[in-house]
């Protein structure tokens, strides 16, 4: 199931946690005055990158939890006071811990998280390289000088198959009658 139980989740999880809050609102609309557009963008960026500690898996800007509104207010205050993003992150970290960071810090325990995808990519390239190399050593159907085709198969003990030029023509004709793409001249396979 995908997106569809967000609201239920928010209210339900709070009930399950036995945590209460005086306000529960629907859409999160804060009205703050910023001195510059840049400040406003930072505010949105930061409230999107911190996770609400109360209700589950929502960022500060979309969470209806009361503490999310409080934290947005604090972020606003710190931006207006001229604090840097690092200082604001430190503020959040020292109170709620790593949980509130949607962008996990790079530590010895998160190395695998951050570099895992690169490892996957390298492993994939290595495997792909081997596949291509193995494949190059495998024999392909070869076109003989007389126009016949030899299909060689090294993986099974099947005798090589030879189609003479005449047979090939006949096959092509058959295929044409059935509007079939041929292997060598395949429609999608160009």
């Amino acid at each position: 199931m995908k997106l569809f139980e967000r609201m239920l989740g928010l209210s339900l999880v709070c009930v399950l946690l036995y945590l209460a809050f005086p306000v529960n609102s629907h859409a999160q609309v804060d009205v703050y005055d910023f001195e510059t557009v840049e400040q406003e963008q930072r505010f949105r960026q930061l409230s999107n990158e911190f996770r609400c500690p109360m209700c589950q898996n929502a960022n500060l800007s979309s969470s209806p939890g009361g503490v999310a509104a409080d934290l947005r207010r604090e972020i606003y205050r710190m931006i207006i006071e001229g604090q840097t993003d690092t200082q604001i992150e430190e503020f959040m970290l020292s109170r709620y811990g790593d949980f509130v960071l949607y962008r996990p810090r790079l530590t010895t325990q998160t190395i695998l998280l951050w570099f895992g995808p690169i490892l996957f990519l390298l492993a994939g390239i290595w495997i792909g390289w081997n596949v291509i190399r193995n494949s190059a050593s495998r024999k392909s159907p070869t076109r003989n000088g007389d126009g016949s085709v030899t299909v060689a198969n090294n993986s099974h003990a099947v005798a090589d198959v030879v189609i003479s030029a005449e047979e090939r023509k006949r096959l092509n004709r058959l295929l044409a009658e059935n509007d079939l793409p041929t292997n060598a001249n395949d429609m999608t396979g160009r």
Binding site: N48, E49, R51, N57, N59, G97, D98, F99, V100, L101, Y102, R103, P104, Q109, T110, L112, L113, W114, G116, P117, F120
Partner: peptide, 29 residues
Amino acid sequence: SAAILLGTLYPMVYQAMTGGELISVGPPY
């Protein structure tokens, strides 16, 4: 796919390995 799976399950594995510490892996990642 593997990277998304890694990010999705990492908090769970992290919690098991660190004995209860929580992290979040979210949209920025």
